[in-house]
Simulated scan of single mutants.
Amino acid sequence: MTKQEFLDFCHEEFTKRGFKKRKKTYYLNGEGILVGLYLQKSMAEAYYVEFDFFIGKFKNPKLYPTTYESDYYGRVCVLSKDIDEGDYYMTALIEYELYTPEELKPYFDKAFDEFIMPPLLEGKETVLKIMEYYDDYTLEEKENIIEKLQLDQ
């Protein structure tokens, strides 16, 4: 897939789920939580598809926070086309030229179904469950998010 085809694919995947583009980020507002999606360019012919979560009430799209202000984040992961130690592996670095939209779609669906949409649809209580999946948060970062979730109620 070309770079433009990948960008178009991402745009379609984001907008069909209700995300709206504001500058370079796609946003969707939930009850007490805002999700931002954006494509982070790599040095290679590749992108990271990052999803950022912001806890709080955000009414004015002109004042939406940036990725640098996120409370926690994750990335869409796909099965690599490279083999490491005799096997394929999951990677967040999407080398778009190696994939077709049909190959990427199941990974995007999984990311939306399991990580991105639950806090928007089910509420903030799913935030901690998702953070547990991404185990790279320190205890202090988790405590700060718990506090922020409680303050926002």
Rank of each mutant, 00 (worst) to 15 (best):
G86K: 00
E5K: 09
K24T: 14
Q40R: 14
D84E: 09
I130P: 07
K23T: 13
Y48P: 08
L39A: 03
Y68A: 06
L121S: 08
G74F: 00
I94T: 15
T15C: 15
Y38K: 12
Y27P: 00
K59H: 11
E141L: 12
G74D: 04
P106G: 10
F112L: 14
G30K: 07
Y27S: 01
Q4G: 03
M117G: 02
E31I: 07
D52M: 05
L37H: 08
F51A: 10
R75Q: 13
R22P: 00
M131F: 01
I146L: 13
L28F: 13
V35A: 03
D82L: 09
Y89E: 05
Y73G: 03
P101Y: 13
M1D: 03
K110S: 15
F6V: 12
Y72D: 00
D136A: 04
C77N: 10
Y88E: 07
L28Y: 09
L28Q: 15
K24W: 09
Q150S: 06
Y26V: 02
E69W: 02
K23G: 06
E103C: 11
F14W: 15
D84A: 12
P119K: 01
P61Q: 14
E31W: 07
K142T: 09
Y99H: 06
Q4L: 11
L93C: 12
N29G: 01
N144K: 15
D109Q: 13
V78G: 02
S80C: 05
A46K: 04
L121I: 13
Y134L: 04
D152C: 04
Y96G: 04
T67M: 03
A111I: 01
P106S: 11
E45G: 04
K23Q: 14
E69Y: 04
Y48G: 08
I145K: 05
D8F: 05
L63V: 04
Y134V: 10
F19D: 01
Y47N: 03
K41V: 10
Y88W: 09
F6T: 11
K3A: 12
F58I: 05
M117S: 05
F112S: 02
D52H: 14
M131G: 07
A111Q: 10
I116S: 00
T138P: 06
L28T: 01
N29F: 03
V78M: 03
D8L: 13
A46V: 09
M1V: 11
I130A: 02
Y47S: 04
K16P: 00
K57R: 11
Y47W: 06
D8Y: 03
T2P: 01
V49A: 03
E141C: 06
L63S: 10
G18S: 08
K57W: 04
T91M: 02
